[in-house]
Design a protein around this nucleic acid. Structure first.
Lengths: 232, 232
DNA sequence: AATAAATGAAGCAAATACTTATCATCGACG
DNA sequence: CGTCGATGATAAGTATTTGCTTCATTTATT
């Protein structure tokens, strides 16, 4: 779940976004003042900062400048600026200061979600081009979203694919069903469901794996599952 | 990483672009004067030249003319012109002199990125006699912009053609709708539309392809589309 | 060996995602 | 201006995925 921090003194807007973005698997935190904002940045380490230009204490531009100046502290925290009006000069100034995108108020929530996704995608494309080492005849090319088993391309669904790359990133780690669910679905996952079992079963099937003598996914009785890495 | 050279005496703008375009995998070099500019062209061999019209020594039009005249030296170096104001006459003159595009100041950075992508895409399509390998009965002659399916010439629209050659350059790569949109239409592509699906559907139709048992374009559920290459 | 607890997997239904026909819009061209 | 083709938007129609239920099977425990 993506953590998003909004610095905006409009309390109503904040609450609205908390609710609205929840549906998109984003946890929204609201800071009504810049000082509170800086505090929260350190505390929750958000994946994205949404900044209003009009703020008490100091304006959004200044905050943006400060964060960019102290990149050793804040890293390349993506910033989306909200401006009262879509003035081109504002945009130039904002982007010059290092904001990643802009959105003039009032905006459509969907538009905001779109821009957020754009920014997050850009910034996580760089980080998360995690290479996955081939294991025991299974190769995953993340950039192509291609999985090969002994040279043959496998046709996996989204969930199956996500599960597989999660497993392969941590070979030999035993995941509980909770962990898997949380990782794949978000925190809201139902604990009583046996969706994970079903998913594992389906993935096993496509991997031509069997629960009895597992080549890839081993059942750890009473605990969960393990993707076996290099062994024996 | 694409190398981009800017000839502009506005030092501030230069710095802004260096920072901004970095995020889009472009390395920006700045020359404050034309003479320095020509020097750098030879040195770094940029993939794109961004030219301000208003410059000391000689203006952007003259530089553009000179580069086009000495194409034996500079090749077909793509040029994007920046003009102080959106004057139509400026535009016409600039394009007649051989600039590839132009952008009036002040501009939105995203707009600039979109145009840069457009130009780079165009130029790499043309230049790179990167032949597209025939796949499964589909041949593309990029220089003639001709597509043959099992020997018969197909009549494709611009978008269909662009989509096809994008696919064929990366067989077996799964593209998300976002990627396709960004690549075909520029950065600011609209996200909430089935435009890509429609386009794919139309292309499929002309390729006599079917979504159920695809010969060329396979749907990757929950992710996007893949152009299937050689399969064994 | 008997029993309880946990897991595997098939089948079903709801949710989700894709396809495509049709209409609207826009720009090029005469 | 009016027409035409290309492209985008919409929405009804399909298809696929996924979660859940159920029951068979396996494992741990006594």
């Amino acid at each position: 779940m993506k953590q998003i921090l909004i610095i905006d003194d409009d309390e109503k807007l904040g609450k609205l976004l908390v609710q609205y973005l929840e549906r998109y698997d984003m946890k929204v935190h609201v800071a009504l003042t810049p000082s509170k904002g800086f505090e929260l940045i350190k505390k929750i380490k958000p994946d994205l900062l949404i900044l209003d230009v009009m703020l008490p204490e100091k304006d959004g531009f200044e905050i943006c400048r400060e964060i960019r100046a102290k990149s050793s502290i804040y890293g390349q925290l993506p910033i989306l600026m909200l401006t009262a009006h879509a003035e081109v000069t504002d945009r130039i100034v904002g982007l010059e200061l290092g904001a990643d995108d802009y959105l003039p108020k009032p905006f459509e929530p969907r538009e905001l979600v779109a821009r957020i996704h754009n920014i997050l995608r850009r910034s996580s494309d760089d980080n998360s081009v995690r290479e996955i080492k081939p294991i025991n005849g299974l190769e995953v090319d993340v950039s192509r979203r291609e999985v090969k088993l002994d040279g043959d391309v496998l046709d996996l669904t989204t969930m199956e694919y996500e599960l597989l790359i999660l497993f392969m990133q941590f070979p030999n780690k035993t995941f509980t069903r909770d962990e898997l669910m949380n990782r794949l679905r978000g925190i809201d996952a139902e604990l009583f469901s046996r969706a994970v079992d079903t998913l594992v079963s389906r993935l096993r099937h496509k991997l031509k794996d069997t629960s009895k003598t597992p080549r890839f996914i081993k059942t750890v009785w009473g605990r969960g599952y393990t993707f076996v890495g290099e062994q024996i």
